[in-house]
């Protein structure tokens, strides 16, 4: 195993920063330190987004070539990214320097390209979810799956509200499901997730988990 000299340093930094931020949540006196660290983290997060975009570009540049059957998609992605970036910069220059446009071109791209696409994807998600619910009994034919299946039907029917065909008891059932079992189950899951989150965070603070390459 390779031992890097910067591993202890990065580990120490990660642990120290984590403890300070955590302690600042409980100790008001160190809020300023905590805030400074958080601001630094925000900047780094924004830079990380830029790094991620560069990484995205790099990956798809590598995918260009005759060997990759999806190289066409990568090319489209690169062109769209660069085009959007250029348009955004133009909008930013115009807005910041001349105060003329309020990101009109960027809004146009978003409204006419990204929004319909993502909305359509969500619509297809609805189809996929419907299909998943319909096929759950084929995947797992057990009590929990059957319960899951019929609870979906009841909640959906409880949401159905067209006056001539409205069934009041379905609304009651739906509300009861959402308030009692769904909420209880969600609470239980969230408690479990919270416990897992705490342990994960503690492992990070202890330095046993070092996703930062230490």
């Amino acid at each position: 195993m390779n031992i890097k000299l910067n591993a202890p340093v990065s580990t120490a930094i990660a642990i120290g920063v984590g403890i300070i931020v955590l302690a600042g949540y409980f100790i008001p006196s160190i809020t300023n330190i905590r805030f400074a660290l958080l601001r630094t983290g925000l900047v780094l997060a924004a830079v990380a987004l830029l790094v991620g975009i560069i990484n995205l570009l790099t990956v798809h540049f590598k995918k260009l070539g005759p060997d990759n059957e999806n190289s066409g998609y990568s090319l489209i992605l690169i062109i769209a990214l660069l085009l959007t970036l250029v348009i955004g910069i133009i909008d930013m220059v115009q807005s910041y320097m001349f105060g003329q446009s309020n990101f009109q071109m960027t809004n146009w791209i978003f409204t006419n390209i990204q929004l319909p696409i993502e909305t359509s994807l969500l619509a297809v998600t609805a189809v996929s979810l419907t299909y998943a619910a319909a096929s759950i009994l084929r995947k797992r034919m057990d009590l929990f799956s059957i319960t899951f299946f019929f609870v979906i039907l009841l909640v959906l029917l409880g949401s159905f509200s067209i006056p001539p065909a409205t069934l009041p008891f379905l609304h009651i059932i739906r509300d009861w499901i959402v308030r009692v079992p769904a909420l209880g189950g969600a609470r239980g899951l969230l408690l479990g997730i919270a416990l897992g989150t705490i342990t994960t965070g503690i492992r990070i603070l202890m330095g046993t988990d070092r996703p930062y390459g230490g």
Binding site: L129, A133, I193, D209
Partner: peptide, 27 residues
């Protein structure tokens, strides 16, 4: 995943779902 709506989707569509805190027990 830790997101509850997504857990419902996973339960319905994934072949081997991880529910709740099972995600954090991977290590």
């Amino acid at each position: 995943t830790a997101q509850l709506p997504a857990q419902a989707v996973i339960y319905a569509s994934a072949s081997d779902p991880l529910i709740g805190e099972e995600l954090y027990a991977g290590g």
